[in-house]
């Protein structure tokens, strides 16, 4: 039984099929919340990688925003309606921007890293809000999409194609992250977090590693943003690049911890459902509920939601 639980890939396959199965069981509102939290979960998955390094970014909303705008603007300006092309554009944008900014960001640690990312995301927010050609505060919307040149008639945003697309992409990324964390270069992350100088003397190129992980995590965030636009069909700068959204991601990342790759997704699902139900039952005090949840989480699960599944091997 224990071997079964230790086999993460098997759990991942069960995870994938159970969520595909949920489409036929759960009501629409629950499916919508699940899909949205998967999009956000990808960003938190990216933050998990940085947390393994001991870094926290208060500006991952920037890549979420970039991915979303990449999808929305390609759709609107280039008239490309194929979903896979749009997602590829989102990933490419996240990759290129994080590759360039990584040279600047990788020199910083701790709060400086967090605040610098916040600064970059606020600069992007300012640029978007103040330029009319980028949609200003209205943002962009997208309409009908094609899935491998197959068009669905009477299209709703949330249909079985977009749902399966998002779930499959999320699980694929979880698999990538899982494999990365098991590879030698993934094992280096914890070494760097524990002691930078010693790892440097052992022959690890610290800046290169940080740069690599930064690109990886930012690309995940951009993918999350792109999928979010495909789901919701609209993007505004306030909901993505403004620092409160990034704060929300960090909140979920702290709540879910960095023990395994399931934690970010479960944490994100947990957060979205708590928020929906809190908004529904306590419309005036929902922030209080979320605050209490975080306090309880820190008190009773100091290593995050992930510690429910596997206790860290001492």
């Amino acid at each position: 039984m224990r071997d079964l639980f230790n086999n993460e890939k098997l759990i991942l396959i069960i995870f994938l099929f159970s969520f595909i199965g949920f489409w036929f069981v759960l009501p629409d509102y629950a499916i919508n919340t699940i899909t949205l939290s998967f999009c956000n979960g990808l960003v938190v998955l990216g933050l998990l990688l940085l947390m393994r390094l001991g870094l926290v970014s208060f500006g991952h909303g920037m890549y979420y925003c970039l991915g979303g705008y990449a999808v929305a603007m390609t759709y609107n300006f280039l008239q490309i309606k194929e979903v896979f092309f749009l997602v590829a554009f989102a990933i490419l944008t996240g990759f290129i921007v994080s590759f360039l900014l990584g040279f600047f960001v990788r020199r910083f640690r701790g709060i400086f890293f967090a605040m610098l990312n916040l600064a970059l995301s606020m600069i992007l927010f300012g640029i978007i809000v103040k330029s009319v050609s980028l949609g200003s505060t209205d943002g962009f919307g997208i309409k009908d999409l094609t899935y491998l040149s197959y068009t669905i008639e009477d299209q709703k945003r949330l249909n079985i194609f977009s749902y399966i697309l998002i779930v499959v992409f999320t699980v694929l990324m979880m698999l990538f992250v899982m494999n990365f964390l098991r590879s030698p270069s993934g094992k280096m992350l914890e070494a760097i977090r524990e002691n930078e100088i010693r790892s440097a003397y052992l022959g690890i190129s610290i800046n290169k590693q940080i740069h690599k992980v930064y690109i990886f995590s930012s690309t995940l965030a951009a993918l999350g943003g792109g999928l979010m636009v495909i789901l919701i069909g609209h993007i505004t700068p306030e909901d993505t690049a403004y620092w409160t959204k990034s704060g929300e991601f960090v909140f979920v990342a702290i709540l879910s911890g960095s023990l395994n790759v399931f934690a970010p997704l479960i944490g994100s699902l947990f957060f979205e459902f708590i928020r929906s139900y809190a908004l529904f039952y306590f419309p005036n005090t929902w922030q209080m509920i979320i605050g209490i949840v975080l306090i309880l989480g820190i008190l009773y699960l100091p290593e995050g939601i992930g510690s429910i599944f596997n206790k860290r091997k001492k």
Binding site: M115, L116, L118, A119, L120, M122, I123, K130
Partner: peptide, 9 residues
């Protein structure tokens, strides 16, 4: 909107 963060950066 962003001058504070720009100066900081």
């Amino acid at each position: 909107l962003f001058i504070v963060f720009f100066v900081m950066a």
